[in-house]
Design a protein around this nucleic acid. Structure first.
Length: 114
RNA sequence: UGAUUUUGUAAGAAUGUGUUCGUUCAUGUGAAAUAUCAUGAAAGGAAAGUCCGGACACCGUAUGGCAGAAUUCCGCGUGAAAGCGCGGGCAUGUGAUCCAUAUAUCACAUGACGGAACAGUGCAACAGAAAGAUACCGCCGUUAGGUAAGGGUGAAAUGGUGAAGUAAGAGCUCACCGGCGAAUUAGCAAUAAUACGCGCAAGGCAAACCCAAUUCGGUGCAAGACGAAAUAGGAAGUUGAGUAGCCAGCUCAAUAACUUCGGGUUCGUCGCACUUCGAACGAGGAAUUUUGCAAAACCUUGCAAGAUUAGAUAAAUGAACACAUCAUCAUUGAAUGACACAGAAUCCGGCUUACUACAAAGUCAUCCU
RNA sequence: GCUUGUGUAGUUCAAUGGAUAGAAUGCUAGCCUCCGAAGUUGGUGAUUCGGGUUCGACUCCCGACACGAGUG
């Protein structure tokens, strides 16, 4: 019931390019930027997420940790995310200092306003 | 006791156990596993840097020359190679012995350690008369000139000390030391020792060009193979192209070929996860490793039994809770944390760098006797 | 992933192995002006880091670090 399928993750570069071109709703925290984009009402209804962790955040271990935390929060709290929407999570520098709980709480607060 | 350096460690256990929720791959069941199923496996010593060397794949041909790149004391061992290890020689530095100093001897450390020549070129700021040949002061003589002993400069001044000698001086001559040469002896060799010869007109830098010897075809899994999808031969330029910097040779091509710009597509499978046979169960083999036995002074070897073999692709290997253990804080009850460096990306062998703990050795500092 | 390049003042660039590493711009303090701007005179400030070769290193060599570029 809380599974995370491969189809729920953004993989193609065209999916990421849509965020650049079209108008998106976005919210900025000190740690990250979360963007949302409405999708055509076709196919599956579940929300999808893409994660960007650039090299500025830190070494590969720190980047892996953030990706895992974001995926875990997305998996356990799918109901907070709207259906037929794509989400893009962009991590910013300074996120590697925060603990796992702080990151999850910050994401859940962000989804309320989106 | 502390700091630091070097070497080593089948060490770096996701701290352990349990529960719950998940991720990737393989196999099975199944019509379908991208249906919420079952079983099994799932990150390091450096996975890192990409500095070397290979395997492997492609380049229609990889042949010769030039250019270019890399390596460089000697011997032995190991290895596919790069490299690594052991021993020896030489040079430099430090310390000790000796001690007026040098030489010498011993110990330790470091060394990209071929060549300065009957090959050539280049460089040496400032200072200094002079930096590869010269004469400022001085000395002798006073017409020309002779002279490198003394002065001072410099990183470096044409070997050092003493005697003899002289107008004054000088390897001009002699003794000792140093240097160079070829010979003999020792050594597998690098090289060393010996006596002999040369008065010693040429020193330093080759991580300056260069010379000698040896080695090297290029590109890299985004290599490459197959399938699917898409599409319009649109514009400009060149006359050759064959992936090597140039030339030659060889091969192909001729009205087609190539380059640039613009447009379209931009997904999947294999390569690729120890390997072979097999439809599968399974069997054989390989490597690593644990235990036991036997042989052996040790290194190690053999036999038997068991275990293990990562394979992702916007890129898996995770999260939460409970108990135990440990650490820190606070002060005797409960809070925080699971610890450094750090994340496989075709595979393997090295090198380099980062870092925790333990062990050993060295150096330095402080205290005590 | 693979290949490859570059590091000099806050910024943009110079410097043949040899003075105190130079110039523009910026910043800053005076002068000028009624006050600013412009002008003018000073000051400030750097060889990414660690070793080696050399008498001597921004330069040559080695290792690290940082920042780029190319490649289907």
């Amino acid at each position: 019931m809380f599974r995370l399928f491969k189809s729920q993750r953004l993989k193609k570069s065209s999916d990421f390019a849509k965020f650049r071109s079209k108008n998106t709703r976005s919210i900025y925290c000190e740690i990250f930027v979360l963007k949302s984009l409405e999708r055509a009402m076709l196919g599956m209804s579940a929300p999808r997420i893409g994660i960007i962790t650039s090299r500025k955040i830190g070494h590969a271990v720190a980047r892996n940790r953030i990706r895992r935390v974001v995926r875990e929060t997305f998996r356990l709290n799918v109901k907070c995310f709207k259906q037929f929407h794509d989400y893009l999570f962009i991590a910013l520098s300074g996120i590697d200092i925060k603990s796992n709980k702080e990151i999850t709480n910050a994401i859940l607060n962000a989804t309320k306003t989106l």
